[in-house]
């Protein structure tokens, strides 16, 4: 394939992402719900942490400011990239997915571009809101440095991609089962407990050990930890793990699609 052909081939996914972003931007109200909920969550948790830290300097190595900032960053991954499943599952169940197969693009690539087009906008808006809320509620982040901010953004981007491929794999179980929302609920609740609401260090040792063997810490814990406590070395290890899980999840989604797409069963028009 020539370079120009490769650029053109990638260009279609860029165009899909742009369309998706335009679609998201059509109403200002599209952002209002998640911004309101996120702001409320951050405020409520900042009050919970304030009560928990009353009379204490730190818990599991985190002080009040670190815990608030950790929650703010960890939740960006959830609010920005945590709800792809519902659109994917709807496409699969309604049969719309079948018609997408009649076009010259990679099925997973198309959905990835579509999801990220609006996911990046969602995450960007929530991230900015989080920065503002954090400054008001907890002051400047602890150990604030520009390199840390840059690494947080890269880590959040990897977390977003990982969110997509994991959720896509779960959504594609619809090729076999009629109702797969329960799988996503389990995944979502586990992700919430393992590294989103609380840093891993707050969990019992056995749970921390078990969590390391799952992709869950790469979704929220990694960017949250990089934001407040990780050294440059630890940050690179966390991002390396994120990339490894991303590669595994990409492969998993590809395998699930290859095994399942021939099972598409749509009767009638």
């Amino acid at each position: 394939m020539t370079a120009s052909a490769a650029v053109r081939r990638l260009g279609k996914y860029r165009e899909v992402a742009r369309m998706s972003a335009r679609n998201k931007l059509r109403y200002r109200g599209n952002f209002a719900g998640s911004m309101l909920t996120y702001g409320l969550f951050v405020y409520v948790f900042s009050r919970i942490w304030a009560a928990a830290y009353a009379g204490k300097a730190g818990i599991a190595g985190y002080d009040y400011s670190m815990s608030v900032w950790y929650f703010i960053i960890a939740e960006v991954s959830v609010f920005g990239f945590g709800r792809f499943f519902w659109n994917l599952a709807e496409d699969l169940k309604s049969g719309q997915v079948a018609y997408l197969l009649a076009k010259p693009y990679g099925f997973i690539g198309y959905h990835f571009a579509q999801a990220m087009g609006q996911g990046l906008l969602d995450a960007g808006v929530i991230f900015l809101e989080g920065l503002a809320a954090g400054l008001i509620l907890a002051g400047l982040p602890p150990n604030f440095m520009l390199w840390r901010l840059a690494l947080v953004m890269v880590s959040l981007l990897i977390a977003g991609c990982l969110q997509f491929f994991l959720q896509m794999s779960i959504a594609m179980t619809a090729f076999w089962v009629e109702e797969n929302a329960a799988f996503f609920w389990i995944f979502q609740k586990l992700a919430l407990v393992v590294g989103t609401l609380l840093p891993l260090e707050f969990l019992p040792l056995w749970a921390q050990t078990a969590a390391v063997w799952t992709p869950l810490p790469s979704l929220s814990y990694a960017p949250g930890r990089i934001a407040v406590a990780a050294s440059p070395g630890e940050s690179l290890v966390l991002m390396g793990l994120q990339l490894a899980w991303l590669a595994a999840a990409t492969l998993l989604s590809r395998l699930v699609f290859m095994a399942g797409h021939r099972k598409i069963s749509i009767q009638g028009g």
Binding site: A5, R8, R9, G11, K12, R14, E15, V16, M19, R22, K103, P104, Y105
Partner: peptide, 11 residues
């Protein structure tokens, strides 16, 4: 917008 997207998809 959809026409432009289809143009990109079909290269």
């Amino acid at each position: 917008d959809s026409f432009r997207l289809i143009g990109a998809i079909y290269e």
